[in-house]
Design a protein around this nucleic acid. Structure first.
Length: 147
DNA sequence: AAAACCTGCAACCGCTCATTT
DNA sequence: TAAATGAGCGGTTGCAGGTTT
């Protein structure tokens, strides 16, 4: 429903890039492909997997939804506490927080924060994210040590 | 009953950084 | 060393389903 298909012209060949929600069939193709080949080339993978999606979209779907080690459902008390603690020390470094909250993705934590925690932590001002990832690494290292 | 509004979440976009050539 | 390309991240959007009026 509401699916959008974009048509890209490349000379005589026509590639269709589908957007929007993933169907169960597409999920299965992606799971089957990754189960078979594991490592993918982002630009080539969708074509070989038989998917009309961008590699970026495939990666996102896999990491945020299809990965077998992902935990679904509501956050536990412990997970919530970890997210709050890490957010207060790291700020909006969702991927770094996700490493601490096992089996949860950065996207899931980000959504969880925006929908559940933001209103409760509204007054808690946290530093703006640093631009450089080197700085982020340094912050992460120091956080690891202090924990 | 249905229209309007709200909430939660999956997915996309644009940007930065890392790696390769 | 610089340019091109690939990968990852955070912000934001769009929509389905639920709730309120």
């Amino acid at each position: 429903m509401g699916e959008v298909v974009f048509q890209l012209q490349h000379g005589k060949n026509t590639d269709y890039v589908k957007k929007g929600a993933w169907s169960p069939q597409e999920d299965k193709k992606l799971i089957d492909y990754i189960a078979k080949y594991r490592i993918w080339n982002r630009s080539q993978m969708p074509k070989f997997a038989g998917l009309s999606r961008t590699g970026k979209s495939c990666r996102l779907r896999w990491t945020n939804y299809l990965r077998p080690d992902l935990k679904r459902g509501p956050f536990s008390f412990e997970e919530t506490q970890t997210v709050i603690r890490m957010y207060q020390s790291l700020g909006n470094r969702w991927s770094a927080i996700a490493k601490e909250v096992l089996s949860r993705t950065d996207n899931e934590i980000k959504n969880f924060y925006h929908t559940h925690l933001k209103k409760h932590l509204g007054g808690t001002k946290v530093e703006v994210k640093p631009k450089s990832r080197k700085k982020v690494k340094q912050i992460e290292m120091s956080t690891q040590k202090s924990l």
